[in-house]
Amino acid sequence: MGDLNVNLCGIELDNPIIPASGTFGYGYEFAELYDINCLGTFSFKGTTLEPRAGNPLPRIAEGNAGMLNAVGLQNPGVDAVISEELPKLAKAFHKPVIANVSGFSVAEYAEVCGRLDAEPQVGWLEVNISCPNVHGGGMSFGTDPKAAAEVTRAVKRVTTKPVIVKLSPNVTDIVSIAKACEDAGADAVSLINTVMSMRIDLKTRRPVLANTTGGLSGPAIFPLALRMVWQVYETVKIPILGLGGVSSAEDVIEMMLAGATAVQVGAANLVDPNACRDIIEALPKAMERYGIEKLSDITGGAHEWEKT
């Protein structure tokens, strides 16, 4: 059997499969179905300083080969995450976990990251800078290289754990944002977050989502995500966590060939709660089929032909 291990910012993972934030809760719902310790790790639900009720319903719509969500960062706030959710998570999952953090100001990102940094099970901090409605001239942190760098620096000051910055695809040049994060000290970048989208109900002639727009995820965005991982890999040196529509072992291999060190799986968990387990089980055979002995060897492998 091939070697599935990868190293993510100094921490060894049994395999590169990581459920993406917002699609896996705090893990325990999925632990009803399978032993989630088979995962490389997972990124838990985005955490903010204060509790957030999220957006009005409907928050979910469907697209061809994908789904839209406008949940709006519903979460119980960092204090409740630490006191209530993490102890439950620890019962179901025994490996280091990725803490996903959102904020509405640089200070809030730093505050929440500082508190989660103190939690022993948190192995990495994933900073979500693709949330709209945050300060910075009306632009989200994830669409302005300067703001992205500012958040990255602020978070790096409060933690010694690896910082992963999660990037938005809703930009003209994702490479410049990734580069700004790397220059500001980010240990890794994850991309892509969801793609801003909408649907209209033909009967009511109104947007389906109460929030009008939402983020598209699922297989529909896989080629777009792959292209962005490819481009970012050509410029930055830090590891990339590739995500966006990954649904199979073959998708994982393709994402790694584009430049990903590890791969997150999002929407697939919501339609097929066993998706990550099934992908992990399917990986050895898929590796054999494509002549891969050590999975970590193939990161960026598709760029090789350019150099020859």
Partner: peptide, 21 residues
């Protein structure tokens, strides 16, 4: 309600109640 996953993971169908969300 319009749901995403159906098993509590996506927070797509949350409503406010007198006992919280």
């Amino acid at each position: 309600k319009r749901m995403g996953c159906g098993f509590g993971a996506c927070m797509g169908c949350t409503v406010k109640t007198k006992n919280g969300l």
